[in-house]
Design a binder for these strands. Structure first.
Lengths: 246, 246
DNA sequence: GCCGGGATATACTCATACTTATTATCCGAC
DNA sequence: GTCGGATAATAAGTATGAGTATATCCCGGC
């Protein structure tokens, strides 16, 4: 049993030159794991097997496994081998894990969960930002808003301004955890949006809603900022979910 | 310069036998980084230097670095070396990073940030749980409550029941992100609490407040559950911050 | 002063040998 | 027949040395 019929192993994707070999291996395995190709509890073939089957050194493979273990996806023990851990132990909010999840076709549940989390975090962040933003941060956000108006979201410069707006708002919260979490989620949402938007026209102009949010933050009106941010996210969610085949 | 006077390097802590050598190295370096012993931008000594100075193999060191890089703490490139990244890029909500942060004496800011995040996440989680909990989950929570009453929080069994209560409540949200985030934060808070509680008596009995939360969840009353959870956290925060030298 | 190309330091990859931890198996005692 | 402890087999863990690739720095030419 288990002769040579496992030649279905695909070669390692070395297309991303910024990743080293171990990074590429980690990425490939990571995607395979989060997309369920290897079920939880599955034990990977031994280091030597994997290495010679893929024509790589044990060193590179082991470093890849260390990366995955650091993100909670696998667990290795002598004699027992390296096995896929239960999904409840995965660090699903790790930027890489999130990226791998949204690399393939993410499940609808994953998208829903992510937006639900966004609706928890970001309105609260907006409220904090309204209370704490400095004058300089306000000026930055104002400038970003002008740029968005000038270029629109169809233009990369406009998209950059949009990101700058939200990024500055997050920084204004002053809470490192909130900043880390929200920026990670935003990045993931961006992949999804990019992916989904291939199939249809641009949604409605989000600029007026941004202005409302900006005004609330400028006024130091926390509840209004919270509400405005919530509205913004709900619109984004609607844009993603509804008009798939319009 | 940089002769032999760097003999101040402490030996690697191998006390935790569940960690392998590479894990111990990662932990030591990780703590040194998050506690600011190595400032951002600092370039670590080369692999060969570090390895022979600490009498370990390059293999073990490199695997440790892969772990740290996976958590965003360092970044290594040929010729440039391995350097500490800017704190804004650290995965501070990674369970290990959080543990390392709270291993030493965490800054007051770190504690404040964490509780602020808790006050965002957990009340929202309670609200979701109130809407979605199954009968089985409700029964589990009720049983945990009885156990808490029977043993009190002074007893390990009572503490376990407390954790079971909160863990079940989280699972009831059904949101993987919320579950991962909240359980990570809870673990970190637990370290802090244990640490701080060495110096003083037990705080007030939290059982009545838990009952209020439970009733709200049982009734499917989201807003009430949110309020009850918020109250619970505020009490915990007060217990930690106020009576330091009573 | 700017640009390009080569020297250099450092991480990256590979190959191999050896060690250690853990589990499974086997055997004997009860 | 079951329990428990010695034993063996297996896979990860660690060590070492050699060679490759690549970013950075520096210098020389334009």
């Amino acid at each position: 049993m288990a002769q040579k019929n496992e030649q279905d192993e695909k070669a390692i994707d070395r297309s991303d030159k910024s990743l080293r070999l171990h990074g590429s291996i980690a990425r490939d395995l990571g995607i395979a794991i989060v997309t369920g190709k290897y079920p939880p509890g599955h034990v990977l073939t031994s280091e030597v097997d994997f290495a010679e089957r893929h024509q790589i050194s044990r060193t590179a493979y082991r470093e890849a496994i260390r990366i995955l273990a650091a993100k909670g996806l696998v667990e290795s023990r002598p004699k027992a081998g390296t096995k896929i851990t239960d999904p409840s132990r995965w660090h699903i909010l790790d930027p890489d894990v999130l990226a791998w999840t949204f690399e393939g076709e993410p499940s609808q549940k994953a998208i829903d969960d992510l937006f639900e989390l966004r609706l928890i975090i970001e309105p609260a962040a907006a409220e904090l930002a309204a209370k704490r933003r400095t004058g300089a941060q306000l000026a930055q956000m104002g400038h970003a808003l002008e740029e968005m108006a000038k270029y629109t979201l169809a233009n990369p410069l406009g998209q950059a301004a949009d990101q700058a707006f939200h990024s500055t708002l997050l920084n204004a919260t002053g809470n490192m955890g909130v900043i880390a979490l929200a920026s990670t989620i935003s990045a993931a949402v961006r992949w999804t949006t990019i992916y989904k938007q291939r199939t249809r026209k641009l949604p409605r102009d989000p600029l007026p809603d941004h202005r409302v949010l900006f005004e609330a933050v400028a006024d130091g009106n926390g509840p209004a900022a919270r509400a405005a941010m919530q509205h913004l996210i709900e619109l984004a969610l609607a844009d993603i979910n509804l008009p798939e085949k319009a």
